[in-house]
Design a protein around this nucleic acid. Structure first.
Lengths: 258, 258
DNA sequence: TATCATTTGTTCGTATGTATC
DNA sequence: CGATACATACGAACAAATGAT
C-alpha cells in the first residue's frame, strides 16, 4: 500500500487519496489522472477497486472520464452563463433575456391540455386546452443549452388577438401583447433542481453528475389572474439564474405549487 | 433472457427493463424491487451486470438502495418545501422567511476575510475582514435542512451600530438595522445547482442523486453599494425557491459573478 | 488505409464482509 | 443464531474508443 492506511472500504481510501492529490495540486484542473493500470500498480489494489474509486469521484463531479482516453480533473466549474430572470421594460416594450440565445431549431408548436402540474398553476381544471411552444436554445458563446416551453391557455389567446394566430412569438412580445390587451403584468417563479432524465441529458448535452435547474414562471395579469406558463430547463453547473429583488409590501403571496 | 432484446450493453437493457416496470406500475413508488438474486434469475445475467443496472437507476434518482434490505422505488419527488425568496416589508420591519426554520444549533460566529468569490460580490479586495455567521436550519414539518451563512464586512458593521456587537442577528433584523442606518435596500441573487460535497451531503442529510441548490444574495444600500452577503444551500429535490417579479425599468443591471 | 498499443467499458466467476430481520 | 440482502474485493477475458505508427 502506498500512503493509504485510514479505515473504511479500500475503494474509498483510494478515492480519498486521489481527492487529496487533486486538492494538493498534484493533478491540476484539466490534467489527466493516472490510468487505471497505473493506479492498480500504485495502490496495489485490483481493477474493480480502482474503478469503484473512480466511479465515486465521477459521481461527485470531480473528474470526467473519456472512453479510450482517460480520466481528467474537471476545472472548478464557475457557471459560464448568467441568465437574468428579472423582467425589464421600457415603456411598452419588454427587454429580451440578455443571454444571447439562438434557436437550434424552429419552435415546435402543438396543442395540449392541462395536467395536474400545469392546471393549478394556471388556475384551470384538468383537461383544458392549451397552446404549447417548445424551443431548444443555445448560447453560442458557451455552448450552453436550454429547453424553453410556453403554455398559453385558449382563453388567454382569445383575449390577445396577436397571440391566437401566432403562439410561437418571443416571450417579450407575448408580454407586450398582453400589456396591449390591458393587463398589468407581474410574474411568480419557482426554481428547483434535480437529476436529468435520460432524454434531457441528451437534449441539453449534459456531462455526468450535472443537475438540471428547472424554473416555472407564471405571468399574472389583472387581479393576479394567471395568463401563461413558461418553463425553462438548463444545466445547473454551466448556468446560473440571476434575480433582482426590491422589498414589497406583504400582499397575499401567491402559493406556487408544482 | 426475459423480454430483453434491444441493443446496447446488457446492464443498460436490464436497467431499461426495470425502468419500464416502474413506469408501468409493476413496481409502485415505495415498493421494493426484486432482490439482486431474483434479478439474476429473471434476466439470466451475472451479479455485476445486475449491480451495474441498479447503480445506473440509483444515480438517476429513480430508486434508493438500503443495505441489508433491498432497493426501493422513490416516490416522484415533488418539492415538499417552498422557500419564498422575495423580501416583504411592513413599514420598517421586514417579514421573516415564511419557512418555519428552526436552528439546529446556536449560530457559529467567526471572523474571516474575503475570497476571490466573495470579494467581488461585496465590491472589496481580497483579504478584507468580515464577520461570518453560519446556521444549520431545519424545517420541522418536512425535515428539510438548509445551511445559511451571512458575511458582514467590518465597514458595514461599523456604520450600523446594532450589528457590530451582535452579528448573529436574524437577517430580517439586519435589514431593519441597515434601513435604520439610512439605507434603502435592494437585493440581487444568483441561483445555481451542483452535486454536493461529501460534508454537505452529511450536513444536509441528502440521499443519493440529490443536487444542492445554492443561492448567493447581496444586499445593496444607497448607490447600490454592497452591504452584506448571504448564502443558502439546501436540497434541490426537497425544496424549491419562489420569487415574485415585477417589471422594472432597465437600470444598469448589476452583473453578479460567482 | 490499416494496424497496433493504450485506455476505458462490459461481463463473467467467486469469495467474504456487513446490515437487517 | 440463521437466513436474506446488499457491499466489498479479487481475478480474468473480451469489446470498444482513441491516437499514433
Amino acid at each position: 500500500m502506498a500512503g493509504i492506511e485510514r479505515p473504511g472500504p479500500l475503494y474509498q481510501q483510494v478515492a480519498a487519496a486521489i481527492r487529496q492529490g487533486i486538492a494538493d495540486g498534484d493533478f491540476p484542473p484539466g490534467s489527466p489522472l493516472p490510468s487505471e493500470a497505473q493506479l492498480i500498480e500504485r495502490y496495489q489494489v485490483s481493477r474493480p477497486t480502482v474503478r469503484n474509486a473512480i466511479s465515486a469521484l465521477r459521481s461527485e463531479g470531480l473528474i470526467e472520464v473519456r472512453h479510450g482516453k482517460g480520466s481528467f480533473v474537471k476545472d472548478a466549474q464557475t457557471p459560464l452563463l448568467t441568465i437574468e430572470r428579472t423582467v425589464t421594460r421600457s415603456g411598452k416594450t419588454f427587454a429580451p433575456d440578455p443571454a444571447q440565445w439562438q434557436q437550434a431549431h424552429e419552435p415546435t408548436v402543438y396543442r395540449t391540455t392541462t395536467t395536474d402540474t400545469t392546471g393549478p398553476l394556471l388556475n384551470l381544471g384538468e383537461g383544458e386546452a392549451l397552446f404549447g411552444v417548445d424551443r431548444v436554445l443555445t448560447d453560442p458563446a458557451t455552448g450552453t443549452r436550454a429547453l424553453h416551453r410556453v403554455l398559453i391557455p385558449f382563453a388567454t389567446a382569445e383575449n390577445a388577438p396577436t397571440l391566437a394566430g401566432a403562439p410561437d412569438t418571443a416571450p417579450e412580445e407575448i408580454y407586450a401583447a398582453l400589456t396591449a390587451a390591458g393587463h398589468k403584468l407581474t410574474w411568480s417563479e419557482t426554481v428547483r433542481a434535480r437529476m436529468p432524465q435520460a432524454d434531457e441529458r441528451t437534449a441539453l448535452e449534459l456531462p455526468d453528475a450535472t443537475p438540471v435547474i428547472h424554473t416555472l414562471r407564471v405571468t399574472h395579469g389583472t387581479d393576479d389572474q394567471p395568463l401563461i406558463l413558461e418553463e425553462l430547463r438548463t444545466s445547473g453547473s454551466q448556468a446560473q439564474l440571476s434575480y433582482r429583488i426590491t422589498a414589497d409590501s406583504p400582499r397575499a403571496l401567491r402559493a406556487v405549487r408544482s
